[in-house]
Amino acid sequence: MGDVLTEEAGPGGLAQLGGLSRLADDDLRTMLLIRHFELKLLDLFDRGELSGTTHTCLGQEYVPVALAPLLAPLDHVFSNHRGHGHYIARHHDPHGLLAEIMGREGAICAGVGGSQHIHRDRYLSTGVQGESVPVAAGVALHLKNREVGSLACVYIGDGTFGEGAVYEALNMAVLWRLPLLVVVENNGIAQSTPTGSQMSGTVRGRAEAFGAGHTRLTSLDVNELRTGLRPVVDLVRHEHRPQVVEFVTHRVGPHSKGDDTRPAQVLREARSNDWYDLYAAAHPEHFSSLDAAQRELIADIAEEVAARPLSTWEPPCV
């Protein structure tokens, strides 16, 4: 048992050796766009310009970017509370998302949903942990019967493995051979609780218990990740074999805003795994040629969106 625990326990550890490979411009641009979007949100919060709450994906931006070209327009994507990166990687629409979060004209969902409740085309996020896994299974059931070749992809965190809904859905998905891809962003923590304090056993053990495939990816290198992901996504899409893909990733920022209680050493480890710094070190010219531009782009977007009129909504009250 000890072996399994050490092998699979949380991400932690030091930065990878070997450095990151050079990214395509578009991939790097998207990752930087998400990074600066998230940093801007924290900044806007600090200045009292945002209400409610938000969960940034700082450190995890590469996950949806790695997946993006492997998902087709007719695939469904289900996201969770930490979904800005998922949305931007899919729809490249920082304006609409920021307007949604700020309750401004042009908001994706008229400002009703806010940061955690987004629906656009075949993308949907909601704020109750685990809830969307059975829903994604239902969508996958439809796809299997009516739209062969499309899949449902659902993002969850490691903490969400505490929810029974995840297991009910996995069971049905494998039983009925549904095209369901479960993407686990295992960032080693759920709000304030380290994975080791809330999960017995492993994600792999849980997936395999249901007969679902499991792939554990520790790399931060988008090119390498894609190579690993492609055959796994194909298994879901073409053979209807549900897969759990576990990204060992690193939450570099707070859970929401200013609520990070992790010890300094843990934070240091997370930061030492930040793709942003690692990429800047590995490809300084490529990085700096795009980074400043994306930062400015987000600054302009934020200014423009903040100046828009408030969003309007007609409540469907009886």
């Binding site: 059975p134 299974a137 809904a165 859905a169 049905m172």
Partner: peptide, 20 residues
Amino acid sequence: LSTPISEGGIAGVAGGLALT
């Protein structure tokens, strides 16, 4: 479809079907 004993799960599957 006869389902496992998963009331929450099947209500969710129904929601997913309805979504499509």
